[in-house]
């Protein structure tokens, strides 16, 4: 086994609703349902997204021990992407133009590209991206070890497809909703406006609440 990382970036995601207990077979079965499927031999540009485990990058098995991370469950999403290498396309296009003795027409360029995709793509290996996350079942929390938007969205989509539960990113509002505030504070949180801190060119110290851009300037709260 390999150990989960001890450095890097993370996005906090919350979910509401019931998830199968990760220690039960139903959880592994749900992952297996959305397991990774290889596109190694695909003859077209494709993206494949699916679950694997840290010990089995093929998606063939989801042993409970491979998912076990003590207080958490170790999820791993594999994202493979196969695209026609642009440089190879350019090389073949230049060669065809040279053989023709002039520029290729749009139709010729399209036909060349289609031909290359059929011939080259089965030989092109996809790029592999393994995205780790820790799921804390008790806290209804997922810590995703990827901060890019595209990967985060792919993970959220895979999670939803697998468990039919949406994941909410913990921005300042969402995180605030998970800090145990009372009803009045929750209302205040949703309505809160930014503080307009003073520019202290003089000695006057004023704190005022910000208003929406269209509103007139606020009175000083204190001096």
């Amino acid at each position: 086994m390999v150990a989960i990382r001890r450095s890097g970036g993370l996005v906090t995601l919350f979910y509401a609703g019931r998830l199968p207990d990760p220690r039960r077979p139903a959880f592994a079965a749900a992952l297996a349902e959305q397991r990774f499927r290889t596109i190694e031999n695909a003859a077209s540009e494709e993206v494949s997204v699916g679950w694997v485990t840290a010990l089995d990058p093929t998606g063939d098995s989801f042993a409970a021990a491979d998912l076990d991370a003590g207080v958490a469950t170790w999820l791993r999403l594999r994202i493979d992407k196969k695209v026609l290498p642009k440089r190879w396309l350019a090389i073949h296009r230049d060669a065809a133009a040279k053989a023709k003795g002039g520029k290729l027409s749009a139709r010729e360029r399209r036909e060349l590209r289609d031909d290359l995709m059929q011939r080259l793509l089965p030989r092109v290996l996809p790029t592999v991206n393994l995205v780790d996350a820790l799921l804390f079942h008790e806290q209804k929390l997922v810590l995703l070890f990827a901060t890019g938007r595209a990967v985060r969205e792919a993970f959220q989509k895979a999670f939803f497809t697998t468990f039919t539960l949406p994941l909410e990113a913990a921005d300042p509002l969402q995180l605030g909703l998970h800090t145990g505030l009372g009803d009045e504070q929750l209302t205040a949180l949703e309505r809160v406006e930014a503080v307009r801190w003073p520019d202290s060119q003089g000695n006057r110290v004023t704190v005022t609440a910000a208003r929406p851009a269209a509103a007139p300037p606020t009175e000083a709260a204190s001096a």
Binding site: M1, A3, L10, D68, A69, G70, F136, L141, L143
Partner: peptide, 18 residues
């Protein structure tokens, strides 16, 4: 001592940071 132990320890530390 094992990767399994390290994973459990780190998972607890990730959670604690959060």
């Amino acid at each position: 001592e094992s990767d399994q132990d390290r994973t459990a320890d780190r998972a607890a530390n990730w959670l604690l940071l959060h």
